[in-house]
Design a binder for these strands. Structure first.
Lengths: 152, 152
DNA sequence: GCGTGCGCGCAATAATCTTGCGTGCCCAAG
DNA sequence: CTTGGGCACGCAAGATTATTGCGCGCACGC
């Protein structure tokens, strides 16, 4: 782990989470460092695991998103384990959270349309082991879709 | 809009959504094209808006994630508009969806800890205009966090 | 059969990334 | 107060990667 992140680190990480397509020189201008200094900081983020990877973001409005709230039948560790494995195997599962509260899991499905959604919900959720019940909320408008996380 | 995406386009987009850090040559090897052909296809995705941007992904386990289900007080267009503006102004709002069903919105908050979460929930949700009620589910384990969307 | 358009590979050029090196700063030990 | 080590920086050379002009071949429609 790096000791602590300074102000430049936070600014850099915010910029990278917003748009990592920038050149090292552009980033350097924005935070007041040389390209190589920026480079070395980014290397450090990667080494420490703070920065996982870079991804391209596809326009989400071309897809059908659905938020599913899932409750399991039993609370045994084994029941959770098999459920997780089952759901994780599906590529349509965009996000998958274990949560506190009335439900056990939140699953966000990304499909190409209602036909695909039905098929996927059937296969991934309805057929999941230890499922008690679930409800689905369809996304009418994906107002904001980021993975941005605060760094301080 | 491009006429239609062929099989190579789909493979390319899947690879880019998974990891856009690869070189054009590496992508070319994976899909069977020259670097410049890959380049031109990616340019097209960008021009047509299919590809929005590239982002760096920060390890989500270093943050506190919370899924909030929100119901508004009134259903008037004006009520929705002001609520959206209010919520969108907060940087802690990682994702923001208008959904069908019992609730109106799903908001995913990313904060640096419980203190930050409380402050944020107070400011962003509780003080939001036209709020009727909301519930919060804390993320115990972010099993999968992507923005991957199917392209076919 | 014959143009036309489109996407491809190749190759030269431009841009960006990468890395070794020397410098200055800060902190801790003497 | 001085000295030495560690660390991050900027600079610049070299390597890698991205960009773009060019000519070719294939498919489609006339």
């Amino acid at each position: 782990m790096p000791k602590t992140l300074d102000d430049i680190d936070h600014r850099l990480l915010a910029l990278l989470q917003q748009d990592s397509g920038r050149t090292l020189a552009a980033l350097g201008d924005l935070v007041g460092l040389s390209p190589s200094a920026v480079q070395r900081r980014i290397d450090r983020y990667r080494e420490t695991g703070l920065l996982r990877r870079e991804i391209a973001v596809v326009d989400p409005s071309s897809a059908l998103l659905a938020v599913c709230l899932v409750t399991l039948d039993r609370e045994s560790p084994e029941s959770h384990r098999s459920f997780r494995e089952w759901v994780q195997a599906a590529p349509e599962v965009q996000q998958f959270y274990n949560v506190s509260g009335d439900h056990d899991y939140v699953v966000i499905l990304a499909t190409s349309g209602m036909a695909h959604h039905r098929e996927t919900a059937e296969r991934v959720i309805k057929n999941a082991p230890n499922l008690r019940r679930y409800s689905t909320m369809f996304v009418l408008d994906p107002i904001r879709t980021t993975l941005t996380v605060p760094t301080r």
